[in-house]
Computed example of a mutant assay.
Amino acid sequence: MAPARSAGDGHPVLRAVRGLPGRIPDPAGRRPRVLKQNRGNGGIGVWKVEADGAGGVRVLEARGGAVARVMPLADFMAERLVAFEPGGGLVDQPFQARLLDGMIRCYMSGGQVVGFGHQMVRALAPAEAGPAGPRLYSGPDDPRFQRLRAMMERDWTPGLARRLDIEPDDLPVIWDADFLLGPKSTAGEDSYVLCEINVSAVFPIPDEAPDALAATTLKRLASHRRKRAPAS
């Protein structure tokens, strides 16, 4: 089965285990791959996979305390069969070399950025990188992230709504999107690579966000009342 395209970021979603040999190791032979289950938390169900140089693969799960394993690709494929049950699949992404530069979480209310969280993540990093740092929260006007904010509000989120065939007002009152830093452009600007989207486990949130969430909720309630009001 040919890989489908995941919403918004262009990474393939493998829908059948037989698609793995064509993706693992990296067909371009340049860098490790990261495979993710459709759902998970705490790094569970996220694997960094790379060729070991002897015909097998080296596999490291992102959950805390995981130890890298070297195994035949066929064994790794057998372990992943459960991920391809109906409704499942694995998102396939290239490993991001700038992982140690941190992850940026965009807190969203509908299509509006309402805050940020920046964290020095260490999942899938070598042990010598040390422990992860706390997530540091800031409001939507944080000057470090205004380019990302503009991309989220003007391009990525409207594109997500179109791809899912929903109205922007159908997006959750509170959700977030995590980004890693990709390669810099020739002008020295950062690029951003979507890591994951969270809807059911978003809190805690920045102190600046609750007022915006309340405003979104009130706006939607008012819109709902207008739609239900009898015609005069």
Rank of each mutant, 00 (worst) to 15 (best):
D75T: 11
H118N: 02
G88K: 11
A97D: 15
G115H: 03
P131R: 03
P126E: 11
P131W: 07
M103T: 14
R98I: 09
P140L: 00
E79W: 10
E85S: 06
A150M: 12
M152R: 02
F76Y: 02
A123V: 14
H118W: 13
M77Q: 14
G111D: 15
A125V: 08
P94Y: 04
I104C: 14
Y107W: 10
R122W: 00
C106P: 01
M151W: 13
D92F: 09
D101W: 10
Q112F: 03
L124Y: 04
A125D: 12
L148Q: 07
A127I: 04
V91C: 12
A83W: 08
V113A: 05
I104D: 03
V114Y: 05
G87C: 07
F84Q: 07
P131T: 09
D142A: 11
R135K: 12
P86G: 06
G87S: 07
Y137K: 01
M120Y: 05
A97I: 11
Q112H: 08
C106I: 11
V114P: 04
R69G: 00
R69M: 04
A78R: 15
D141Y: 07
L124W: 07
F76L: 06
R144I: 02
A132G: 09
A150C: 10
A123I: 06
R135M: 13
L99K: 02
R105W: 03
G133A: 05
P94E: 05
L73K: 02
L136D: 12
M103A: 09
A78Q: 08
A83S: 13
L148T: 03
E128P: 01
R69K: 06
